[in-house]
Computed example of a mutant assay.
Amino acid sequence: MKIAIVDDEIHCIESLEMDLESLESEHEIVFKTSNPLEALENLPKLKLDILFLDVEMPKLNGFELLDQLHKLNFDVVFTTAYSQYALQAFKNKAFSFLLKPVDVDELAEVLASWETDQKKRSVLLDEIAVKELLEKIKYEGYVKSKIAIPTVNGFEFLKVEEIMYCQSENNYTRIHLQCGEHKLISKTLKDVEKTLTNYMFLRIHQSYLINPKFLKQYHKNDGGYVVMDNGNSLPVSKQKRHLLTEFYDIISRD
């Protein structure tokens, strides 16, 4: 926790330093001054977490100082002997407000609250970063080419274009790949179908979901079945025959 203190009364700076040292929080005072003009020059150059800022100061009060700082990359805790400044402090987006003489317990509460707030911000930033990454991946077409399947140690990424068909095995699904390999995962075919819903896979039977890219033949006789590129024959249920007819109509259009 990197801290700066700006107060025109030197004894107030020293007192706050002593109070901070009495607490168990890990912190470093990287800047302190009794001259607000010096603070105006140096604060933008610092890597800072919290600024303890007095309100009543000659030449430039605390609010005026903040107004002249175009961008704040730190949180502000106002310290003043005058409670009437509290409302104005929070209007200036202060993180907190401490009345002089500063109570050590209240100071500890402010620091603890700041640390809790930082953790929340960190989680939020992580979530935002992940969402931005997913949007970028989606935009670049990566999501359209791969899916993640669970494994014992984590996930394995499969190219959608290499999935020939998926076969239900009770509460599991066996994924058959173009290379002849197959992956058994602990997801139902219904769940896998949801994952592949945007990839034009066809659910031709209660037990089969196929990639039409590998569809070689469709036979209407013998109850209806398809032949895949690897020579395997898969049944087609009566309720799903219209899907193959519609698929044929689509790919036959000019």
Rank of each mutant, 00 (worst) to 15 (best):
K2M: 10
L66W: 06
L209A: 09
Q217I: 12
Y248V: 13
L243I: 13
N221T: 15
E169N: 15
N170K: 15
E162C: 03
S237R: 03
R203N: 04
F52Y: 09
T80P: 03
K32W: 10
Y218L: 07
S122D: 13
I137R: 14
L66K: 07
K216Y: 13
I128T: 06
Q68L: 13
Y218C: 08
Y225S: 10
L65R: 05
R241C: 09
I128N: 03
L177G: 04
E169H: 09
K100M: 01
P212C: 10
D117R: 12
F31S: 02
A89K: 00
K32G: 10
H11K: 11
L98C: 01
P36S: 06
D254E: 14
E38L: 15
D54A: 08
G180R: 06
Q88V: 04
L51F: 10
Y142W: 11
Q68W: 08
E181V: 01
D126W: 01
L87W: 03
E28W: 02
N35F: 05
Q68C: 09
Q167Y: 04
K187G: 01
P101T: 04
S34G: 12
L60T: 07
K190M: 02
I50Y: 09
E9Y: 08
I149L: 07
C166Q: 02
Q167R: 12
I185N: 02
E21S: 14
D103I: 00
L69V: 13
K100N: 00
Q178V: 11
D8G: 05
L72K: 14
Y199A: 08
I50D: 06
R253I: 11
V130R: 10
H11G: 01
K93E: 13
V123H: 06
G141H: 01
E156I: 11
G180N: 07
